[in-house]
Amino acid sequence: MTAATEPLLLATAVRKAYGPTAALDGADLTIRAGEVVAVMGPSGSGKSTLLHCLAGIVRPDSGEIQYRGRELSAMSDGERSALRRSDFGFVFQFGQLVPELTCLENVAMPLRLSGTKRRPAERQAAEWLERLEVADISGKRPGEISGGQGQRVAVARALVGDPRVVFADEPTGALDSFNGERVMRLLTDAANDTGAAVVLVTHEARVAAYSDREIVVRDGKSRDTERVS
């Protein structure tokens, strides 16, 4: 097995319950470097919980999640936070940009949090805004731009730190078809260029069609086509 095909993320028998309700009930999956994987399933099937577990945001009740061979639950909270900043990027359904900051400052924020000085951070942020075709709104605040523009800014923010994995939770869920497709094209093109893997949670088949393969989650169980074969 070459380094390129070694699993980046490996989840085995992951379980997570909220009270008496099992959100995940034995999820298995493998994510490899550079691949775009769609996590699909109906509402309430556990796909967002799975994403949160994979990203180290939520700690599973049982099961294992390894990132590049390291067990996530064996890390301290501080180590997991550092990992999220250094290796992961996030795009959510509603951008979740900081409303008080300009788009440029929003995109530069992950770099600033990692200790990059303001000027070089904003220079990189400006390059990413240009790449995501939203350079013209860099001085505007999130309240002054459209939903589609906001999601492109969010994609720029997710990719600016050169992450190994981008977690995208329904990134087009609040957009119309045209803007949703534009965001997906830009996200997957940028991830392909940088070599980042994308874990894409979606219930929309047309969005999932931008992935390389899909993992179906139903009743908290995942069916990973790669694991099956």
Partner: peptide, 16 residues
């Protein structure tokens, strides 16, 4: 239904 979904998605990827 699962295998049909996979087949539909395969064609959707090709068209995309």
């Amino acid at each position: 239904l699962d295998s049909q979904r996979a087949e539909h998605l395969r064609l959707m990827r090709e068209l995309t």
